[in-house]
């Protein structure tokens, strides 16, 4: 097996995640796309760790932990948005408009 094939798979997943973050309107779906990107990174970490020892695996574990934290807080925020606006449509959140 080649290193490149895993890296390319990760790149594809990451790009799909980027697309999802940009295009999806529903807050929960945006979070799912973020998960895609995080997992792509994890594949990279593991693939490279075959060269560099176990550090990559340890940090992949940390990424999983951080991802769990991120989903928890992210969903709480989405829930709060839903409670305040009766919708999780990110398009409507344009208070930053200049």
């Amino acid at each position: 097996m080649l290193l490149t094939q895993f890296l390319l798979l990760a790149a594809i997943l990451f790009s799909i995640g980027v697309y999802g973050v940009i295009v999806r309107k529903n807050g929960v779906l945006v979070l799912m796309s973020v998960e895609l990107m995080l997992n792509a990174v994890n594949i990279n970490l593991i693939a490279f760790s075959t060269y560099h020892g176990l550090g990559g695996q340890v940090f992949a574990l940390f990424v999983i932990a951080v991802a769990a934290a991120e989903v928890g807080v992210g969903l709480a925020i989405v829930l709060l948005i839903y409670r305040n606006r009766r919708s999780v449509d990110i398009d409507q959140l344009d208070e930053l408009k200049g």
């Binding site: 290193l3 490149t4 980027v18 697309y19």
Partner: peptide, 29 residues
């Protein structure tokens, strides 16, 4: 979204293939 996604994909795959080409995985590390 499609443009940006493809841009990212193109860039990453180009540099990955260019850098690592046909490196074989070895699990000795």
């Amino acid at each position: 979204g499609i443009v940006v996604g493809l841009l990212v994909l193109g860039l990453v795959s180009y540099s990955v293939i260019k850098t690592f080409g046909s490196d074989k995985l070895d699990f000795s590390a």
